[in-house]
């Protein structure tokens, strides 16, 4: 479904990704780990179509088509979803309005009939059960004054209503307490259906205690340094990333704790 081949991406003329190869099949869950600055978020941004990420070499095909040629909204309409590492606040726009607009924009793009207001609300309410989100958050401005955990649940809610075919979670687990982490993991597990694929970008092993990946890749210096099965994270837990850098110690994990 997704085929990344020799992908080189630069930001502001600084090369960040220098030759990524990755195959993600239908229904597969891939975890991408690696130290800060290894290029994990750049990969996520490039796949979702963030501006300013320049592909200098290589290609990405999605369902046999050139993903990189598509506008971000077209990628979304074709079932690609990115859960943001830092969810964006949109003052003055209610969460429910955003969700309705998103669902109908995508439906329209797919040539499906748009849902009316009532159907939309019940559809969204239904998906909310997945995330354990408080109903009143629907009527607040998008992510404004949300706690860190609420913001991440909100990303999961957007994922659930958009019913993507490929979801990329960019460090959705960072900064979460154990309950919120479980919610994220539950959402992913419930949406796993044999066809839907996931790329979980994470700094830590703990998300992978709840979501068992098919493959795990370690990104370092813009390349995949190592790939393995679900046991790889446990190995990393023991060794850290120090073996990658060749120097003594890896940077402390706590430095990445945000929010």
């Amino acid at each position: 479904m997704l085929s990344i081949s020799n992908l080189h991406v630069g930001v502001d003329e600084t090369p960040i990704l220098s030759g990524i190869d990755l195959e993600v099949g239908p229904g597969e869950v891939h975890a991408i780990m690696g130290p800060n600055g290894s290029g994990k978020s750049t990969l996520a941004g490039a796949l979702a179509g963030r501006e300013g990420y320049e592909t200098t070499e290589g290609s990405v095909t999605y369902d046999g088509e050139d993903l990189l040629a598509m506008a971000p909204e077209e990628r979304a309409a074709r079932g690609l979803f990115l859960a943001f590492q830092y969810p964006v606040e949109i003052p003055g726009v209610s969460n429910i309005y955003l969700l309705k607009s998103a669902v109908n924009a995508v439906r329209k793009h797919r040539g499906e009939e748009e849902l009316d207001a009532m159907d939309l609300v019940s559809f969204i309410r239904d998906k909310m059960r997945l995330t354990g989100m408080d109903d009143q958050l629907l009527y607040r401005s998008v992510n404004e004054d949300f706690s860190g955990g609420e913001k991440k649940r909100n990303e999961m809610l957007q994922m659930a209503v958009l019913e993507p075919r490929l979801a990329i979670l960019d460090e959705t687990d960072s900064g979460l307490d154990i309950d919120a982490l479980r919610t994220v993991a539950d959402a992913v597990n419930q949406l796993r259906d044999g066809n839907r694929s996931f790329i979980l970008i994470t700094h830590y092993q703990r998300l992978l205690d709840y979501v068992v990946p098919d493959q795990v890749h370690v990104l370092y210096d813009g390349k995949i340094a190592k790939s393995g099965d679900a046991n790889l994270p446990k190995e990393l837990e023991r060794t850290g990333y120090a073996w990658l850098t060749g120097s003594g110690e890896a940077e402390p994990e706590s430095a990445a704790q945000e929010q």
């Binding site: 979702a48 179509g49 506008a71 909204e73 949109i90 607009s101 998103a102 924009a105 401005s141």
Partner: peptide, 21 residues
């Protein structure tokens, strides 16, 4: 970018942000 990644066109995204403002 966030709104476009949720399927809104560049147009819709702009208008929604202006409206929110």
């Amino acid at each position: 970018f966030f709104l476009r990644s949720r399927g809104l066109s560049q147009h819709q995204a702009r208008n929604l942000l202006i409206f929110g403002f």
